[in-house]
C-alpha cells in the first residue's frame, strides 16, 4: 500500500504542476481585460499554483509520515506490553494536546530536525518544508494511532480465536486476519484525517513555508485592495480539494466494502 501511494502521489503532484503551469500561461495572456483586482489575482495564478503544489505535497507527505508512524503506534497500544503502550499513549497525548502551530514552531525553531533529516539536500525542498512534514506528520501519527487502535479493537475477538484455531501464530493472525479487516474499517477515519491535515497545512504560514496560504497572504499584502478576491479564491481551492477528495474516498470506500459489512 505504501510505495504505491507514494508513487501515485508523486505522479499526481507532477502532472498537477504541469497542468497548472499551462493554465497559468494561458491565463496571464487574457488577464488584462478583467477588473483590476481580479486581473491581479489572474496574473499571479502561477505563483498561487506553485503554492498549491507545495500544499498538496505537504499533505501527502505528512499523511504518509502519519501512517508509517501511526499504524505501529496504534498496534502497540492494542497488542504491546504495558510500558510500551503507556509510552506511546503519553507521547500521543502530548501531540494531540498541543496546538499544531506550537508543534510547527518546535519543529522549525527548537528541534534541529533539518540537521537530523537533511532531506532538503536530496530533494528540492526547503528546511521549512521538512519541518512542516515532521510536525504535521507526527501530529497526524498521534491521531492515526487512535484511529487504528479503535479499528483494531473493533475487529471481533472471535476472529483472533478462529485464526489461532486454524494454526496461525498470534503475529500471523494479526497480519492476515485482523489488520486487513481493520484497515478497511479505517477508511472513513482516514478520510477525516486527510481533511484535517490538508486544512492545517495553512498553519505552516507560521514558519514561513511558501504553501498556498502563505502565498495568498504575500499577494494581498502586495495589493491590499485584492484581499477579498485572493482569500475567496484560495478558500474555494481548499474547498474543492477537501470536497472532491472526500467524495472520491467515499466512493472507494463503498466500492471496496466487504458485502454484508457496513462501515
Amino acid at each position: 500500500m505504501l510505495p504505491g501511494t507514494g508513487v501515485v502521489g508523486a505522479v499526481a503532484v507532477g502532472s498537477l504542476e504541469l497542468s497548472i503551469r499551462t493554465i497559468a500561461q494561458l491565463g496571464s495572456d487574457t488577464c488584462g481585460s478583467l477588473p483590476p483586482d481580479v486581473a491581479f489575482v489572474c496574473e499571479n495564478a502561477g505563483y498561487l499554483a506553485g503554492g498549491l503544489v507545495l500544499t498538496i505535497a505537504l499533505t501527502i507527505a505528512s499523511l504518509l509520515v502519519g501512517l508509517v508512524a501511526g499504524f505501529p503506534a496504534g498496534a502497540i497500544e492494542v497488542y504491546g506490553g504495558r510500558y510500551a503502550s503507556l509510552a506511546v499513549e503519553a507521547v500521543g497525548t502530548v501531540f494531540r494536546g498541543t496546538p499544531i502551530v506550537v508543534i510547527l514552531i518546535f519543529a522549525y525553531f527548537v528541534v534541529p530536525i533539518t540537521d537530523w533529516f537533511p532531506i532538503q539536500r536530496v530533494l528540492p525542498v526547503g528546511g521549512a518544508f521538512v519541518a512542516a512534514v515532521v510536525g504535521l506528520g507526527l501530529r497526524s501519527a498521534a491521531y492515526q494511532s487512535q484511529l487504528f487502535r479503535g479499528t483494531l479493537q473493533s475487529v471481533d475477538e472471535g476472529q483472533m480465536e478462529a485464526a489461532r484455531a486454524v494454526g496461525l501464530s498470534k503475529l500471523g493472525a494479526i497480519r492476515h486476519v485482523i489488520v486487513p479487516q481493520a484497515l478497511r474499517r479505517s477508511v472513513p477515519g482516514f478520510q477525516n484525517e486527510f481533511t484535517i491535515v490538508l486544512k492545517d497545512t495553512s498553519v505552516a504560514i507560521a514558519i514561513g513555508l511558501a504553501e498556498l496560504f502563505t502565498r495568498s497572504q504575500d499577494l494581498f499584502v502586495q495589493r491590499t485592495t485584492a484581499v477579498t478576491e485572493v482569500i475567496l479564491l484560495i478558500s474555494a481551492v481548499y474547498f474543492v480539494m477537501t470536497f472532491g477528495t472526500n467524495r472520491a474516498l467515499e466512493y472507494l470506500n463503498d466500492y471496496y466494502a466487504i458485502p454484508g459489512e457496513s462501515t
Partner: peptide, 17 residues
C-alpha cells in the same frame, strides 16, 4: 457525508496516569 467524517479523534488523555 459519512458519519465518521464529523468526528475529530478525542485527545484521549484519561488513561495515561
Amino acid at each position: 457525508m459519512s458519519e465518521t467524517g464529523a468526528t475529530r479523534t478525542t485527545a484521549d488523555t484519561g488513561r495515561v496516569v
